[in-house]
Design a protein around this nucleic acid. Structure first.
Lengths: 148, 148
DNA sequence: AACATATAGGATGATTTTGTCCTAAATATA
DNA sequence: TATATTTAGGACAAAATCATCCTATATGTT
């Protein structure tokens, strides 16, 4: 459903918010470690999020990534859009070039319902809100380390 | 949402049913042409569908692919499963190794709703039924050729 | 000013997915 | 039995995605 890149992006941006809500910026290294994602690849994704104005970034010592009020109304849909593009949300799910009410593919009317739920999932809570849930311990964005 | 391979698979198997309902087998070449998919790649996918017993195949002159009563209750979910595997339907959508009711990711409860609709879309009509709709002209599985 | 730290971004490599090509195996027909 | 046709399947190639490495750029600190 989501590419690896957007999975990392979602976990990363929620993590950034958890830190920003406690007034601290985080570096790419710390983010990668926190979400169990490769650091350099995560850094690339953070660039994309930054360019899309979903997070802020500051170079240099004490720099890092952060989110603030200017990002407060962003949702996971913005994240998935920035990283994976529009294809999950629009266009024919079977790849037909002309697919419409008048000339529908076999999934045309059904996919609307799926996308409605998908949209709801990705827009009904702000990323900030999702981060609060993580802080509260209600949800979780990390792998669980297996101990023998 | 769906891989290219499973998009081809869905169109191919519906096309095969449209032909089988009129008592004729179809070859890989004709299938590829009918759904605007590369022939050799389509052939590989047809092998997978055949191995998964979603269609039948016969070698040699007058051979080809077909569907019959023994395939009549198969759905698109079986097709997507055979081609793309299980990941769309189960497992953590953010890729967490341990994600459960007790230790949920931020999307854990929401993804259930999306998958419910997805499941409905892929199981509420048999492939055979979808083919009938195509035959009736109610739906369509081909690209529309652009004429200048 | 020099230095250290951190993001930005280009170049490159690995892996997966997509796609092609060729040979083997099966089977209908002459 | 020989031949033509068609699926099965292995080997290979191209493109996209995932991932790493190195240098440039910005900026805080000494």
């Amino acid at each position: 459903m989501f590419s690896k890149a957007s999975q990392y992006a979602i976990k990363a941006i929620i993590y950034i918010w958890t830190q920003s809500l406690q007034d601290s910026k985080v570096g790419a290294k710390a983010i990668g470690a926190a979400i169990d994602a490769p650091e350099a690849f995560t850094a690339k994704i953070l660039q994309q999020l930054s360019r899309a104005n979903l997070i802020g970034s500051i170079k240099g010592p004490n720099g890092g990534f952060y989110a603030n009020e200017s990002h407060a109304n962003k949702t996971l849909k913005d994240v998935v859009r920035a990283v994976d593009g529009e294809s999950l949300f629009s266009g024919c799910s079977l790849g037909l070039n002309k697919c419409s009410e008048k000339n529908p593919c076999p999934l045309h009317f059904e996919i609307v319902e799926v996308r409605k739920k998908l949209d709801h999932m990705l827009t009904n809570k702000s990323i900030r809100h999702l981060a609060v849930e993580v802080i509260k311990g209600e949800t979780n964005i990390k792998h669980i380390i297996q101990v023998e």
